[in-house]
């Protein structure tokens, strides 16, 4: 997506960065250059035409920058004053520092050389930007698993995973053909064809306990995404609890005392109500409500209470 190229300030900024970039990449293809700066080739020609009119006071051919781009390849001369790249802005430094911390922690354990290289880059950039307190970014999940998934996607190979299904609290082994990684509700999922279930499924990457390449290569046979049936439920909120709102995915400050929503799994519903203890009361469906009461009583008996 090309960013809006037309505010005078963003254009000025781009032109100032264009001079050092072209100086370091003399003879670069105009289309490649447009791609680097995320603008259309026409916009790039307009930018270069504007630069052509700029230079040192005097503005005779001796002082003006010397640009050539009509052959489709761009060169620049007589631009010494602007030929060094500009200093990083604070925002740019923050972006690189957070990115570097994430990269450093995602590097394989045996690349101590690169880790220390990243550490020294972080130190250099923080000093430059006067950012003393480290900005930290922890990878979301096991890097071995995400690397295996990316590899499986790009090589179209099958993967054998050990997966912890949260609602049934079971660990199962499954053969999957990963298709893509999706980001939903603050978590990364791998969308895959699951050969074990013979259907398309999403797996939360941080719940994959282990992964290895499967030997057999299987083809994707099913073609429809399985439609999970949903159940409707009603919940009475007995106290205002942030944790309860977050667990049931309700609006942050929604103060309704009674809510109705849909759940994909009765196991999820029972566990979520149990975990909310006295803060939430399930009113519908009645069957699950009774199940919760029975479960609580049964556990109390194990504690020697009744």
């Amino acid at each position: 997506m090309a960013k809006s190229p037309q505010t005078p300030l963003s254009r000025t900024s781009r032109l100032l960065d264009l001079v050092p970039y072209v100086s370091a990449h003399q003879g670069i293809d105009l289309k490649v250059l447009a791609d680097v700066f995320d603008v259309t080739p026409n916009q790039m020609v307009a930018d270069l035409t504007t630069l052509w009119m700029c230079g040192l006071p005097g503005y005779t051919p001796l002082e003006l920058m010397d640009l050539s781009f009509d052959s489709g390849y761009v060169t620049i001369h007589n631009a010494d004053t602007l030929s060094q790249p500009r200093n990083l802005t604070i925002e740019e430094s923050i972006a690189l520092l957070l990115g570097l911390d994430l990269v450093m922690q995602s590097l394989p354990a045996d690349r101590e050389d690169l880790k220390s290289m990243a550490t020294s880059l972080i130190r250099k950039l923080s000093l430059q930007a006067n950012l003393l307190s480290p900005l930290r970014a922890e990878p979301h999940h096991n890097k071995k698993n995400s690397a295996a998934i990316l590899l499986a996607i790009s090589t179209k190979k099958m993967l054998r995973i050990k997966y912890h299904a949260l609602y049934s609290d079971e660990v199962t082994e499954r053969d999957i053909s990963p298709i893509e990684i999706r980001y939903e509700n603050s978590h990364d999922y791998v969308f895959a064809y699951c050969h074990t279930a013979q259907a398309f499924r999403s797996f939360r990457i941080d719940r994959i306990l282990d992964s290895k390449q499967a030997h057999a290569s299987a083809s994707v046979t099913g073609s429809t995404v399985s439609e999970a049936s949903t159940i409707s439920y009603s919940l009475k909120l007995r106290t205002n609890q942030r944790d309860v709102m977050e667990r049931f995915n309700l609006g942050k400050t929604q103060m309704a005392s009674e809510v109705t929503s849909r759940a994909f799994s009765p196991q999820w519903l029972i566990r979520s109500v149990m975990a909310s203890a006295g803060s939430a009361e399930l009113t519908e469906p009645r069957v699950i409500r009774a199940e919760i009461a029975a479960a609580a009583a049964a556990i109390l008996q194990k504690y020697g209470e009744s």
Binding site: P20, Y21, P85, T89, E92, A95, L96, L98
Partner: peptide, 14 residues
């Protein structure tokens, strides 16, 4: 911070 990250990268590549 994608835009800031990309413009930082252009400067470094320069």
């Amino acid at each position: 911070l994608n835009e800031a990250a990309q413009s930082a990268l252009i400067k470094l590549k320069s």
